[in-house]
Write a protein that binds this DNA or RNA. Structure first.
Lengths: 107, 107
DNA sequence: GTGCCACGTAACCATTCGGTTGCCTGTTTA
DNA sequence: TAAACAGGCAACCGAATGGTTACGTGGCAC
C-alpha cells in the first residue's frame, strides 16, 4: 500500500499548499515555489521530496533549475478506491450515473 | 481550516482501518474495535479521539459501552473541495455534469 | 575567471506522534 | 457483595516530523 505515502503526504498543510501552487502553475522551479512562504528553501525541498516519494510530484532538470510537475493520479486513485466508498452512502444515484458515464469513455 | 484535522486523521493506516471497520459495521464499542488489532485498548481509544476531533467519528454511551459511529461528511467535503479539483483536469466534462446535478451551478 | 545563483547535503533541534504501562471509576453479573 | 468487565486518565518513552543553520557543488553571466 503506497496509498499510505499519499495520505501522509497530503496530511501537511504546507504540502497541500505546494500542490495548490503547482496546480495553478505547473513546472515551477524550487526558488519559485519558495516565494512568499514562511519557510526556508531547504524546508520546501524536503516537502517536495515527500510529495515525490508519494508520486504526487515529478520533476525535470533544466540547466541549473529543477522544474516540478504535479501528478494527480495518486489522488484520483485514492478518490476512487477510498473516498467514493463513503460517498456512495449519500450520493448513490449520482454515483451510479457517474460510473455509467465513466463507462462511456468520454474524456 | 479543520480540513487539516481530517487530512491528518486520515494520514494514519490504523485510523483508516478503524474507519473501515466502522464502515463495515457501524456502532461498535471500544473493545469490539480493538479485537484483532496489535494495539492496546488505550492506543485505539487515542486513535478514535483523533477521528472524533476530525468529526469523522461520533459516539453514544449505552450503559457502560461507548458505541462509535462513522460520519462520512468531512470526507465528502474534502472530496468535493479538494480532490475534485484535480480530477477535473481529466474528467472535466463529467465533473461539470456532476456539479450541475448537485445544484452547484458554479463553473 | 570570478562571482552569483539554484540547488544539494548534513547536522542539529524542538515538538508531535504512536504507543506503552499503571491505576482509577463506574457498571454489570455470578 | 465480589469479581469481572468497559472505559477514562495520566505519565512516560522512542521515533518520526517539520523546521533550522551551515556549508558544498555546479552552471551561467558579467
Amino acid at each position: 500500500m503506497d496509498d499510505d505515502a499519499v495520505f501522509r503526504a497530503l496530511a501537511d498543510a504546507s504540502r497541500r499548499q505546494l500542490l495548490d501552487r503547482l496546480y495553478q502553475k505547473d513546472g515551477q522551479a524550487l526558488v519559485e515555489l519558495c516565494e512568499g512562504l514562511a519557510m526556508s528553501r531547504q524546508a520546501v525541498a524536503k516537502h517536495l521530496a515527500i510529495l515525490e516519494a508519494a508520486n504526487l510530484v515529478s520533476w525535470r532538470r533544466v540547466h541549473r533549475e529543477k522544474l516540478h510537475f504535479i501528478n494527480p493520479l495518486p489522488i484520483n486513485r485514492i478518490a476512487e478506491r477510498w473516498i467514493a466508498k463513503f460517498e456512495r452512502r449519500h450520493l448513490s444515484a449520482l454515483s451510479a450515473l457517474k460510473k455509467s458515464l465513466e463507462g462511456d469513455g468520454n474524456d
